[in-house]
Design a protein around this nucleic acid. Structure first.
Lengths: 160, 160
DNA sequence: GCGAGAGAGTTGAACATTCAACCATAATCG
DNA sequence: CGATTATGGTTGAATGTTCAACTCTCTCGC
């Protein structure tokens, strides 16, 4: 192999690949379950969760974007889709007239309530319950560190 | 909240969300680095790695698909792209005339050698080196379990 | 041998995401 | 103030992925 790079040792290599294929499979599966049974994609679901938790069930587009780590453009498109399906409404901000808030509708809330048990069951069955509490805690720590590193690296971070 | 589902406890919830946003950020970043500096996407890179490691630098499409856990269709399209860029060639199998093998070209191999240091540096900087050896080992274990579970769940597993 | 599946892979349309250009409003500064 | 720049968000085209239908070859039972 080529230069003097600090390659991964065999353990790290195996873990890294396990992570890559595991993630692929997992998100594929969770996404499929939501789509088939509840007509929602995983990212859409994530967004509804955030909205449902927000005070008065609404969020500014940019805040929402940051909270799920998607680009602004992506959020615009996704919210547009959710709006077409009647799960979300777009209302323009009173105080900042550039701004737009996404509000989850009653229908959206119901869809979310429907979908949540399916989703959580999947997260458990295909991830959480497969790991010891400690191991899963480690996953949390690791990806917290990843997030910190990557938002620090990309300051003020609009992702794009 | 709704029914009698086994929700995640607060720790699990935090870990799960950390994983979700961390993964998003990480793959986004690794992909971007490869694209900008080496004109390869992360999935393309993964494929070249597999091919480069294969005996005589070739693989049947289906085997390749399984090894990176992508759908057959996706592999077809991706290989088509790689072929257009001159990184891979498609040759039809001698023994099974339905079959096709993807072969990495010299150009592809060179591109891979170029890209590898960048990529590994990223994997280290934004993931591996941020975690203790034990924690990263846990990540490996967890996602190995995920993979096992999901492949078992979807027997013979062509993904689609 | 041959006809009915099963397996390998491709195709093209539908859909989602990214990318770059863009409009509108706000904030800043001379 | 008025011009400039920054911020919030959208748009449409390009790119990538998924989905369902399809072709071709192989296999197996008769």
């Amino acid at each position: 192999m080529p230069p003097d790079t600090a390659w991964l040792d065999p353990d790290q290599q195996r873990s890294w690949r396990a992570y890559l294929v595991g993630t692929t499979l997992l998100t594929e599966r969770l996404d499929r379950d939501l789509r088939e049974r509840h007509n929602l994609s995983l990212p859409e679901y994530e967004i509804l969760v955030r909205l449902s938790e927000a005070p008065s069930k609404r969020m500014r587009m940019a805040v929402l974007a940051d909270s799920v780590s998607h680009s602004r453009s992506r959020i615009t498109h996704t919210i547009a889709r959710l709006e077409r399906n009647g799960f979300v409404e777009r209302v323009s901000c009173a105080d900042d007239r550039r701004g737009v808030e996404a509000v989850i509708t009653d229908g959206g809330y119901r869809a979310l309530e429907d979908a949540a048990p399916t989703h959580v069951a999947g997260v458990r069955a295909f991830l959480v319950d497969l790991a010891s509490h400690e191991d899963f805690g480690a996953v949390g720590r690791v990806f917290d560190a990843v997030t910190d590193k990557l938002v620090e690296a990309n300051p003020a971070a609009d992702i794009r």
